[in-house]
Simulated scan of single mutants.
Amino acid sequence: MEMEQRPITLPNGKRSSIRLDEPTWAAIDWLAERSGQKWAVWCNNVIETVTEGENATAALRAAAMDGILAETLFPERAAQHADPSSVTWKNLAECGDRDFDYALEQAAKDGTIEGHADCGGFTVYSGVSEHGNVTYYIRNNLKDGSNVIINTPYRLEEWAATWSERMEG
């Protein structure tokens, strides 16, 4: 996977650079444009939230994924928040590869995985949980990246109805 490095002036005034994969940069550029910001301003807003010792690059990847999810899969949730990257999910599970593989294997065994999409830096699997809720399994394809499972509050019928409304409107 191609990596791109961009120079940036950090919130503390120091010059640095950020190295991310092209799909993550595309997500950051898109999210920044949607919020009326330059990519560097968007990145600095995320970097300012990073606690000491935390990896700023990992925080940028996570914020980009959260923002893309909020803007595309869950736009009605994003509208409830001024900052799409601050969206939190009540039923969000972050897990390592072993736990993620187990959860995905169980869902596939139960026949609840409906499909998947390769998005470059991550793969999204969609399905329905054992409780009937729409669920997304997001595998981070980057080394040492966290995977995410989002068990939405929507039942399949509700999701289908709201999806149809969004597509018609």
Rank of each mutant, 00 (worst) to 15 (best):
V148W: 07
W159S: 11
Y137T: 08
A117Y: 09
N140S: 09
L92D: 08
D118N: 12
V124Y: 05
E94Q: 12
S129I: 02
N133Q: 09
A108D: 10
D97F: 02
N133M: 07
W163S: 15
T123I: 13
G115A: 12
E114G: 05
I150K: 03
Y136E: 06
G121S: 14
K143A: 11
N140D: 13
Y137V: 05
N133V: 01
G121P: 04
E157N: 12
K143L: 08
Y125K: 07
Y154L: 13
S164A: 15
E157R: 12
K143I: 06
Q106T: 11
T162P: 01
D97T: 10
I138G: 01
R155S: 11
G127P: 03
N141K: 04
V128H: 00
S164M: 14
V148R: 02
D118V: 08
H116Y: 14
N151V: 03
V124K: 09
N141E: 08
R155D: 11
G132E: 05
G111M: 04
N147E: 02
W159V: 00
E114P: 02
N133D: 06
I138D: 01
R166T: 14
E158M: 11
T162S: 15
F122E: 11
I138K: 02
C119S: 09
D118L: 04
E165W: 11
A117G: 06
E114Q: 12
